[in-house]
Amino acid sequence: MKKALSLLMAASLVFGLAACGNSNDTQKDADAGAQQDNSAAADTGSDKTWVIASDTVFKPFEYTDASGKFVGIDVDIVAAVAEDQGFKYEMKSLGWDAALAACQAGQADGLIAGASITDERKESGWLFSDGYYQATQTMTVGADSDITGFADLKDKDVAVKTGTQGAAYAESLKDEYGFNIVYFEDSPTMYQAVLGGQAVACFEDTPIMASSIKDGDLALKILEDTANEGAPYGFAIFNEANQELLDMFNAGLANIKENGKYDEIIAKYLG
C-alpha cells in the first residue's frame, strides 16, 4: 500500500511540474507575440487574433513617435473599436505596398492605412467599411517655388507615392497638363524629391501633407485651389471570410462616434 501511495504521489508531482512548465512556456510565447501594446485587452472568449496591416509613415494616421511607439489616428481608432467590440488583434506596420500584398495573400485579415474608398478599388476586390475620415488630395511645391498651379507643370517631373489616391489624382491630370510622373514607395522619400529638386511638386492627401509640413518643418507649401473633391478613408478586407471583422469595425466605429471617443482621437492628432 505504501509503495502504491508513493508511486501515486510521485506521478502527481511530475504532472504538476509539467503543467507549471507548460503554463510558463505559454506565457513566454504570449509575451513574445505582443507588439507595442497594440493588442486589445478585451477577450470575447475566442482564440482568434485578427492581423491588421498598416502603412509605416502616413502621419498623423500612422507613424512612429519619439519613443518608438507606433501611433496615429488609424492606430487609435482600431484600438477603440477593438475595445468596444471585444476582439483581439495584432497590428503590423508594413508599408503601403507590403500591407496590401499581405492582405491579398491572406497573411493579414484587414488593412487600415488612410485608404480612400473608391469604385475602382471596390471593383478590384476591396471590401470597405463605412468611411471614418473625409480627405482630399492636393498639390505641394517647394516653399520658394514659382509654380502656382497645374499649368506650370508642363514637361516637368512630379512626385507621387505608388498606389495612392494622390498618385491617381496626378495621373488624371498628367495628359492635360503635360507633366511627367515619378513614383516613390513612401511619403518622406517623395517629399525629399521635391526638396532636393528631383521633382517640382508632389501630390498627397491634404491632412497628411499639412501635418508633415508643420511637424517636420519642411520647406514646402500646399497650393490653394489644387485639391480634388476627395473621398472617405475606410478600413478594408480582401476576403469575404473576414466579414465578421468588417462588421465589428462598422459597429465599433458607430459606437465610438456616438460616445465621443472618435472626436477625442481626431482632436488629439489634428486639434
Rank of each mutant, 00 (worst) to 15 (best):
M1N: 10
M1V: 12
L5W: 00
S6V: 12
L7D: 04
A18D: 01
A18I: 05
A19Q: 11
G21P: 01
S23W: 06
D25H: 12
G45N: 03
D47Q: 14
T49W: 01
I52G: 06
I52R: 06
T56K: 13
Y63L: 10
Y63A: 10
T64L: 00
I73K: 07
V78A: 06
A80C: 07
A80R: 03
A80H: 04
A82Y: 00
A82L: 10
E83I: 11
E83G: 14
E83P: 05
F87K: 09
E90F: 02
D97P: 04
L100H: 01
A101K: 13
A102R: 06
A102V: 07
C103M: 06
A105D: 03
A105T: 03
I112W: 01
I112G: 08
I117L: 15
D119K: 15
K122Q: 11
F128S: 15
F128V: 13
G131H: 03
Q134H: 09
V141C: 10
D144P: 02
D146E: 10
I147E: 05
F150G: 11
D152Y: 05
K156I: 02
G163H: 04
G166L: 10
L173K: 11
L173E: 02
L173H: 02
D175Y: 05
D175C: 08
G178I: 09
F179H: 03
N180E: 02
V182W: 02
F184Y: 15
E185S: 14
D186Y: 08
P188T: 07
T189H: 11
M190A: 15
L195F: 04
G196A: 10
G196L: 07
Q198F: 02
Q198A: 15
A199Y: 03
F203H: 09
A210V: 07
S211P: 02
S212T: 09
I213N: 05
I213D: 00
L223V: 12
D225C: 09
E229M: 11
E229A: 15
G230W: 00
P232L: 12
P232E: 14
N242C: 09
E244I: 07
L245P: 01
D247G: 13
N255M: 00
I256G: 06
I256K: 08
K257W: 03
E258W: 01
G260Y: 00
Y262M: 10
I266Y: 02
I266T: 04
A267N: 08
